[in-house]
Design a protein around this nucleic acid. Structure first.
Lengths: 221, 221
DNA sequence: TGAAAATTACCGACCGGTTGGTATGTTTTC
DNA sequence: GAAAACATACCAACCGGTCGGTAATTTTCA
């Protein structure tokens, strides 16, 4: 999936202060999410993760067999954190499925504030760097992105059925497209456009959906 | 900008065979484009570039003061190679500006074949990895992406004027959105969707443009 | 014109810092 | 008291970058 606010303003003490047993793993995961979104996957060293999490290198390799395994675990945590965020978001309330879909896009749009590290997607960042070198990481990121897309499918399918809209790729294909627009928006933001450039694209996505569902007779290519 | 076929099936002899003087620099640039599209920026070492180009490390640092400088030069070469490709493409022929715009999208769609390294964008890949660490690289990639977007602006503006379409971001904003969709399509391809997932999104982009220009009264948000 | 001079192109060994990973010891918790 | 949860010290490989040197090319000027 993509994007979210800080996955929790956890205390994260700089030193190995007193912490609940087993908290080290979670601290390393959170540090990984934050660091990678800022610096990228390759530029995030395990020592940097350890320092940010306030643990030693020995602790790191006690919990994770390799940096790659850390990435897979972090991608799964990303899926969970963002999954919760979107599950609890208010856009599910409307009875009209189209309103729920547009509410989702508006919710995403509202998250686009601050600098790229604040709103860009962990798994989107990682998959671009690691897709060739690490099948396991690629798969974990793919599950996150396509899994999140799948959460939109039901609402989209319902809206399409209600308004008689038919598309070549179906609701699933349209759901994937929403994620492509978001991921591309993040790239433009990183290329210098900032949150404004990303928001612009999300606005176009919203407009596309409204055109699509207001004028179902103007179907596919 | 984004994407293209192989930037030239140059001979690129593996060894330091007889070559025209000064060809080393071009060979290194081409090797960089190919390697980075396959492995990413950080995973592409200067020694790998040298090996692929059939030159020594000494030659590399004779032509480029640093790896970062190589990246900037490669981004500029990417702009030039892809600029030529699109300038010579046939989609400029139609008299109707909307036909030219849709021709561009169809042309991009046709390029989506093979594996991600064959159709993804060099500067899009680099900027995601290097935007935080290297302002110079970020700027070079930004120029490439936004510069390519600007080549669509005139046709879009003409089409909008001809059909009475008005949008918040104007023709420039819509041009940037096309690039966001393409960049996002590449991410989905790398996440496991392959060329098919990318093509699906480009189809949605084409549909958006057709809806937008066929129904100008259904304007912005 | 032609050879000396200067510049450019290129080579490959080497260096110092970094990085992922390991081996081993110590503390904490059940 | 044993096992899990840490910490410390260390290592080998790697990577960007440097350096002294050589060959080819171009420029200079008698």
């Amino acid at each position: 999936m993509s994007e979210s606010p800080a996955p929790k303003p956890a205390p994260e003490p700089a030193g190995p202060a007193k912490r609940r047993r087993g908290a080290a793993r979670a601290a390393m995961l959170d540090a990984t999410l934050r660091r990678v979104r800022r610096d990228g996957w390759a530029a995030t060293t395990v020592e940097a993760v350890c320092a940010a999490a306030g643990v030693s290198k020995g602790a790191f390799f006690h919990h994770f067999p390799s940096k790659e395994a850390l990435g897979v675990a972090a991608a799964e945590r990303w899926s969970q954190v963002t999954g919760d965020l979107f599950a609890q978001a208010p856009y599910h309330a409307p009875a009209d499925p189209l309103a729920r879909v547009l509410g989702y896009v508006a919710f995403r749009r509202r998250l686009l504030r601050g600098a790229p590290p604040d709103f860009t997607c962990f798994v989107g960042t990682v998959v671009q760097e690691a897709h060739a070198a690490s099948p396991a990481l690629r798969a974990a990121c793919g599950r996150s992105i396509f899994g999140h897309a799948a959460t939109l499918e039901a609402d989209l399918a319902e809206a399409m059925a209600a308004r008689g809209v038919d598309l070549p790729g179906g609701a699933a294909g349209l759901a994937r497209h929403t994620q492509a627009v978001l991921q591309g928006a993040f790239i433009l933001a990183k290329a210098g456009g900032g949150a404004a450039a990303a928001a612009e694209s999300v606005d176009h996505l919203s407009r596309y959906l409204r055109l699509l569902f207001d004028a179902p007779e103007r179907g596919g290519p």
